[in-house]
Simulated assay, not measured.
Amino acid sequence: MPSDLTDFWSEFRAARLFVDTTFGQWGLVLHSPDEVRLLTEKFRARRTREYAAGDLVVGEFLGDSDLLIVRCDPSAADYGRVVVALPLDPRSEWYEVAGSLGRFFEKYERAHGAKFWEEPLLE
């Protein structure tokens, strides 16, 4: 398991980032290890064609069905990378958003919770 993920869980267990408190249609929910196991099992059962060994569904974006996945297969070249899984699109069209969970948090914070992978950031 990537160290930044285990570090996150040891500090926070779960989190809600940039959540729209009025309508609940914006933000990211990061789940506890127990919830992640259940979400990952559901994901693997529902999306067998897109699932890859080592996918771990760590979060869900509010307002749509996008999932935040950390690649956890230590033998894979993409170990530790973070991917956004789109609900209807094949894996080839998913976004690789960061090389690590820590780097994802930095980019997501800099974008103030916006989906920086969909549009270029204005800096």
Rank of each mutant, 00 (worst) to 15 (best):
G27Y: 10
F8N: 03
E106I: 12
W9K: 06
L56S: 15
F116C: 07
D73G: 08
V70P: 01
V82W: 05
P120L: 11
E119K: 13
E106H: 09
T6A: 12
F116M: 10
E106V: 15
R81G: 08
A85Y: 03
S3P: 00
W26A: 08
A98Q: 01
R71Q: 14
G59K: 03
D78T: 12
I69M: 00
S92C: 08
R16C: 04
L68G: 04
R91I: 09
L121V: 07
L30E: 03
L38N: 07
S65W: 07
T22V: 15
Y95M: 04
K107V: 10
C72N: 14
L86A: 03
S10C: 09
I69Y: 00
L30V: 14
Y95N: 05
W94A: 00
F105G: 01
M1H: 09
E93C: 12
L88F: 10
L122S: 13
A76Y: 03
P2W: 01
T22M: 11
L56K: 13
P33T: 07
D78I: 09
C72D: 12
K115C: 09
D55F: 14
F18W: 10
S92R: 11
E50R: 00
A111V: 02
E35W: 07
E96P: 00
F12K: 13
A52T: 08
V82M: 05
F105M: 12
E123W: 05
R91K: 09
P33N: 07
F104C: 02
W26P: 00
Q25A: 09
S32N: 08
D20E: 05
H31Y: 15
T6H: 06
E50D: 14
P87F: 01
W26G: 00
D7T: 10
H31E: 13
A85D: 06
K107L: 15
G54W: 01
D66A: 02
E41R: 10
V29E: 09
G24P: 02
T48C: 07
G102Y: 02
L101M: 11
L122M: 09
R13Q: 15
E119I: 12
A45V: 12
W94P: 03
